[in-house]
Design a binder for these strands. Structure first.
Lengths: 110, 110
DNA sequence: TCAATATATCAATAATTCTTGAATTATGGA
DNA sequence: TCCATAATTCAAGAATTATTGATATATTGA
């Protein structure tokens, strides 16, 4: 992931509704969620949500699949991976003791 | 780290100059770098850089120490840790196979 | 083909953010 | 104390972004 792509991803997540959407979709996992259900769940109008989903999709943080009339959205774990990898890329400028605590914190609860 | 704090951190990093600053300071590690040197290194005017450093500092992504006339900035690894921990918090909504590849990618090069 | 449903797009306004020149504050040295 | 240096703060204009009502597109079923 290049720098401008990373900036798009950070920008997409740096807004309350979109961060909520992303985390909701992360929780939904492989089930994903229909655009309308996302809007209703988060109490956001349909077209506002559509615009926000488009921002997340352009940034590679979510992807979508049409299912008949419904468009189902999913968190894009590849995008997430690229973002975190970039942010940690140079974490060890010769001082492992600085970055190790950061890595230790990122422990999956699964 | 709570949600609004996370949004501040994401917003702070979602801009080219500030992302460059953060990564520069990550590379500098414990040495940090004087505000003026950061501005000169990145080719940004001194007051523009000051404003950007203030955004990063408010977001908890950098911290500073005065050394005589100079103010030296450092990446804040605690802030970084909080941000990444929040983003990964719910990565395992019952499907470890989704999040494991994300975690595998975040491997420190040290 | 027509109506209903789900979602996206458009255009306009409101709000926020970025950059910059100018002014200000803080420190150290002569 | 006065000057030079390092950095911050202020105010204003330009640019970007968010939200919304209205409209358009796509799909399904009658």
């Amino acid at each position: 992931m290049d720098k401008s792509h990373v900036i798009d991803a950070l920008h997409a997540l740096a807004q309350e509704t979109r961060l909520d959407v992303f985390r909701l979709l992360v929780k939904q996992g492989e089930a994903g969620m229909a655009a309308g259900d996302i809007a209703e769940t988060l109490g956001v109008r349909q077209n506002t949500m559509s615009a926000n989903l488009a921002v997340l999709a352009r940034a590679g943080m979510v992807r979508s699949e049409r299912e008949g009339r419904v468009i189902r959205y999913f968190a894009d774990f590849d995008g997430m991976r690229g973002l975190l990898a970039f942010l940690m890329e140079d974490c060890c400028g010769g001082n492992p003791q600085l970055c190790q605590p950061v890595l230790d914190e990122i422990v999956c609860a699964c």
